[in-house]
Amino acid sequence: MNHLINSNVRNLEISGIRKFFNLVANKEDVLSLTIGQPDFHTPDHVKEAAKRSIDQNLTTYTHNAGIPTLRYAIADFCNQKYNIKYDPDNEIIVTVGASQAIDITLRTIIQTGDEVILPGPVYPGYEPLIRLAGGIPIYVDTRENGFKLTSDLIRKHMTKRTKCVILPYPSNPTGITLTREELQAIATELQEEDVFILADEIYSELVYEQEHVSIGTFSEIREKTIIINGVSKSHSMTGWRIGFLLAPEWLTKHILKVHQYNVSCASSISQYAALEALTNGLHDSNIMKENYLERRDYVYQRLKRLDIEVIKPDGAFYFFIKLPNTKTSFELAVELVNNAKLALVPGDAFSSFGQGYLRLSYAYSLETLQKGMDRLEQYLEGK
């Protein structure tokens, strides 16, 4: 009865990341630098707020868009941090993680045959959601452009069927972000186009030498822009599953309909935890960012000494590296596991434009990273 399954679902592939994880799961003594989540615990004051919400029986359904106090906290947080202004009553939706925010946005704006432009390599979660909504992903090769999706590249890939441009920055898997000037050029390019901009800014609190600039600051494209963010990376709350979506009121009211029938509302307990994170934990990410910066610089120095092709990441906690070899990313990753007891994510999990690359996460202790780099160095010396 397989033919009865929705063809959009039937044709989806299991994530290349998951395939690799399954393959190496039972390998012994393998040091993994694969995980894309903070290695810090959720702050204690946030956990205590969640416990209080349970004790106070705040465990019922909430407003579909999220508890009002949290939406006001999100508005204040985004205004204070990124100078973007959204009405908490009508322009903010609390979601079940950033992934659900992306899903309900695409299901709201995409119709069958619409094209969605996105950079390659890129986080593998976008393409399946585009296809499930009936859209067609149009990957843009950014490898010769410092892994940046710029206005010039967008222009070259625009057609009459283009409905949306996805801007994930800082990027998973490259850690590259966009500057104010680059964002201004994109805003100017798309200002007169009937095209949505979906900006995934989930790593906004983990940007190092420069400030994070939200594309929501450009008034000329505000009416066509959707900002995605959340507390997973900023407050080490991946399992709490709280994201948020900011968009103009005319658009949010339609996205909210999809959200309502999809999940009703995000977990009440997690919402109260997020409320604490965004009010009393406004700067909780600073200690994490300081640690990640130290780790990034350490790994970068080791990689450069090994003459490995790499672009220094601006944020997040990933390196996207290219080793001298003739193997596919998957074959190389398996060889590293077998011969060096080191697990890195195959680059082709992030689209075909990641072929030949590997993603290395530095969301690990310096001690673990040192061991991992030692194993990589020994592997290369043995080649």
Rank of each mutant, 00 (worst) to 15 (best):
M1Q: 13
H3V: 15
N6E: 13
L12V: 07
G16I: 04
R18N: 11
F20R: 00
V24T: 10
D29T: 12
D29K: 05
L31V: 08
T34S: 06
I35V: 13
Q37C: 12
P38E: 13
D39S: 05
P43E: 09
V46N: 08
A50N: 01
K51W: 09
K51F: 14
K51I: 12
I54R: 04
N57S: 14
T62D: 04
N64K: 08
P68H: 09
T69Q: 15
Y72F: 02
F77C: 06
C78W: 12
Q80G: 13
I84V: 15
K85V: 05
D87S: 08
D89Y: 00
V94W: 00
T95G: 07
V96C: 06
G97T: 02
Q100K: 03
A101R: 00
I102W: 03
R107M: 15
I109W: 01
I109H: 05
Q111V: 15
I117K: 03
P121K: 06
P121S: 04
G125P: 02
I130R: 12
R131P: 04
G135R: 00
Y139M: 13
D141K: 12
G146S: 06
L149P: 01
L149N: 04
D152H: 11
K156W: 08
K160L: 14
V165D: 11
V165H: 02
P168M: 14
I176T: 04
R180A: 13
E182H: 09
L183P: 03
Q184D: 01
I186T: 07
E192M: 09
D194R: 11
A199T: 01
Y203V: 06
S204N: 01
Y208I: 01
Y208G: 10
Q210G: 05
H212G: 02
I221K: 01
K224R: 10
I227R: 02
I228V: 14
G230D: 14
K233N: 15
S236A: 15
T238A: 00
G239E: 11
I242F: 14
F244L: 06
A247V: 00
E249A: 15
I255R: 01
I255F: 11
H259G: 03
H259V: 10
Y261D: 08
S264Q: 13
C265S: 09
A266R: 08
S268T: 08
A274P: 05
T279M: 08
T279F: 05
N280T: 13
L282N: 10
H283L: 12
I287K: 15
K289G: 04
K289M: 10
L293R: 01
R295E: 14
Y298H: 04
L303E: 03
I308P: 01
I311R: 04
G315A: 03
F320L: 08
N325K: 06
T326A: 09
L332A: 14
L336H: 04
V337A: 09
V337L: 15
K341C: 04
A343D: 06
P346H: 07
G347Y: 06
G347Q: 06
F350Q: 11
S351V: 01
G356L: 09
R359K: 00
L360Y: 11
L360V: 13
Y362T: 13
E367V: 11
E367Y: 10
G372A: 12
G372N: 14
G372Y: 14
D374K: 10
R375C: 15
R375H: 05
L376I: 07
E377Q: 12
Q378A: 13
Y379H: 10
E381C: 14
G382M: 04
G382P: 03
